[in-house]
Amino acid sequence: MSETKKKFLYVNRKAPYGTIYALESLEVVLIGAAFEQHVSLAFIDDGVYQLMDGQDTAAAGMKNFSKTYKALGDYEVRKLYVERESLDERGLKVENLMPVTYEDEDDDYAEKPSLIVVDRAEMSKIIAAQDVVLSF
């Protein structure tokens, strides 16, 4: 895969656990990461709930895959765009989201935040700048 890298955006619009969308998206991102493209994720509408801090699925009897978002940095997925309006509409704040970071190998492995809060107009531009958009 030495040809030009393409820009892939995974658009996540569903809360986790109620449906399989969020988990499937995450699995596709991890598998797709092997192809070494420019990958970023967008969290819009209920999708922002995928990044909620303090998810505890023990009583619900489901696998807590929220920890897996923290592995994305290892897979060179370092841009997780979160839509501000989607947070606002749901009464959420950035502080309610879990920290997701990556290690910057060009900066002595400093931990840097992967979450990027953008407004709706910026999100539209991000979508318009992609080669491939995959929706979940």
């Binding site: 619009r13 819009i44 509408d45 709706r120 999100m123 539209s124 531009k125 979508i127 318009a128 958009v133």
Partner: peptide, 29 residues
């Protein structure tokens, strides 16, 4: 360089159409 957006759910059931319209850029379909 524009985008084709598809919506396959009823707007009476889900917010897909609203979200779509909120994120289109000029020249999109």
């Amino acid at each position: 360089m524009s985008t084709l957006h598809t919506v396959n759910k009823s707007p009476f059931e889900r917010s897909s159409l609203k979200s779509c319209l909120d994120h289109v850029s000029a020249g999109d379909a």
